[in-house]
């Protein structure tokens, strides 16, 4: 799915300026635990999370994950946005809870890891 398609189905808002148009998301995982995210072997994935801090950005940077979906109205700070833009990471904010985002994206064809 493209970022535009994802945004559409989760009532999301893109808050970063990156070249998001070239992104094609195939997989997603939902977790608040960065320890967990760091153990995954993944490609073309988005992270759905309720954890909104600088280490969320650092974690996805190390894992080459290029898209973060912040659930349940969590906002990205200016500092997070700045860091994400440097690393070409797209942040989407959504009012939906993690469970709903996961369900909607699963239905739309985004694959799980396990």
């Amino acid at each position: 799915m493209t970022v535009d398609e994802i945004v559409e189905v989760i009532e999301g808002v893109v808050v970063t300026k990156t070249d998001a148009d070239s992104l094609e998301i195939e997989y997603a995982m939902a977790s608040d635990l960065m320890s967990d995210v760091l153990t995954l072997d993944t490609e073309n994935a988005a992270l759905i999370t309720g954890l909104s801090n600088i280490q969320t950005i650092r974690t996805v940077e190390m894992q080459d994950i290029q898209c973060i979906i912040l659930a349940r109205g969590k906002r990205a700070t200016a500092e997070m946005i700045k860091l994400a833009e440097q690393d070409n990471i797209t942040i989407i904010e959504s009012p939906y809870a993690m469970y709903r985002i996961s369900g909607v994206l699963y239905q739309a064809g985004i694959k799980p890891h396990y």
């Binding site: 608040d32 635990l33 960065m34 320890s35 967990d36 760091l38 801090n53 280490q55 974690t59």
Partner: peptide, 12 residues
């Protein structure tokens, strides 16, 4: 609170 402390780091 920062999203760590699952005890998985060293094994990873």
């Amino acid at each position: 609170e920062m999203g760590f402390g699952a005890g998985m780091g060293l094994a990873n």
